[in-house]
Every structure is written in C-alpha cells, then in structure tokens.
Simulated assay, not measured.
Amino acid sequence: MPLRPKPATQPPLPHDCPLEDVLILLAGAWTVQILWFLRAGPRRFGDLRRDLTRVSTKVLTNRLRVMQQHGLLERQVLPSNPPQVEYSLTPMSRELEAVLNSMEQVGRRLKRHSLQEPAA
C-alpha cells in the first residue's frame, strides 16, 4: 500500500516571495565574500581583487555592479590620479551582517562535525 503524502504544515510560499529574491542575490558568485570583506569598512577595487584571489577582474566588476544596482553597495569615485573607486556597505547590506555571522558559526560547527565522523 503506497504511503500518503503528509499535508504541508506551512502555507505555500507567496508567488513573489522576498526570501527567494535575497537567496538568489546571495547565491551570486562572490557576493557573500564581498560582503564579508566590506564589513570591516570601505575597500578599493584593487583591495577587493587581492582579497578575492581567485576572482577575475571582469567577474568582480560585474558582481560589484549587480550588488550596487540592488542597493547592497555604495560606489564612490575618489579624487586621485589615476581615479580610484571605493566600495562600502549600505545600511540594507549591514542588516545582513547578523546572517553572515550566523552562517559562519554554523559553518564552523559543520566543519567540526565532519571532522569527527569517519568517512563512509
């Protein structure tokens, strides 16, 4: 006799679920890492490029542009020769700091847990 599926205990996700939008944005290449480095304060493009050793200049440029368009980053052109650009977090992206901290804590526990269990 086949098992009957249990009914959902939560209402279905709304068609325009805001959680999905945030998850899609955070899942973008290098987004979380960029937010991580900018938590300490504004960084210039070259600094971020060195922080993220494996990212290409093109990918970093595109990701910073997308994050700026979504209101997660502020971009300021510094008066220097040659011109330099500095990126910083917006108040909205500062709200994600608690999420990043929680993710870091869970990640550390997951790592400890995987080291304790023998591989199958």
Rank of each mutant, 00 (worst) to 15 (best):
M1C: 02
P2S: 11
L3V: 15
L3W: 09
R4H: 14
R4D: 15
R4S: 14
P7I: 08
P7A: 15
T9Q: 10
T9N: 13
P11E: 10
P11L: 07
H15K: 15
H15V: 15
D16G: 04
D16A: 11
D16Q: 10
C17R: 07
C17M: 08
C17S: 13
P18I: 05
L19E: 12
L19K: 08
V22F: 04
L23W: 01
I24A: 05
L25W: 03
L25D: 10
A27C: 08
A27T: 05
G28M: 12
A29K: 07
W30Y: 09
T31H: 06
T31K: 10
V32E: 14
V32Y: 12
I34N: 00
W36D: 11
W36M: 09
W36A: 06
W36S: 07
F37E: 05
F37C: 00
R39V: 05
R39N: 12
R39M: 10
A40R: 08
A40G: 06
G41T: 10
G41E: 05
R44W: 03
D47P: 04
R49A: 04
R49I: 02
R49L: 04
R50M: 03
D51E: 03
L52C: 01
R54A: 15
R54C: 06
R54K: 11
S56T: 10
K58D: 06
V59H: 01
V59N: 05
L60S: 03
L60D: 01
L60T: 00
L60M: 02
L60C: 01
T61N: 11
N62W: 04
N62Q: 11
N62I: 03
R63M: 06
L64D: 03
M67Q: 15
M67D: 08
Q68C: 11
Q69A: 12
Q69N: 07
H70P: 01
G71M: 15
G71P: 09
L72T: 02
L72R: 02
L73I: 05
L73H: 05
Q76N: 12
L78Y: 04
P79Y: 14
P82E: 03
P82I: 03
P82D: 00
P83C: 06
P83N: 08
Q84H: 10
Q84R: 15
V85N: 02
Y87S: 01
L89S: 13
T90I: 14
S93K: 09
S93C: 07
A98M: 00
V99T: 11
V99H: 05
L100G: 00
L100M: 08
L100T: 12
E104C: 01
E104T: 10
Q105I: 09
V106C: 07
G107A: 03
G107R: 00
R109W: 11
R109M: 15
R109S: 15
L110N: 07
H113V: 08
L115G: 10
Q116P: 11
E117Y: 13
E117M: 14
P118G: 10
P118E: 06
A119N: 06
A119I: 13
A119H: 14
A120I: 15
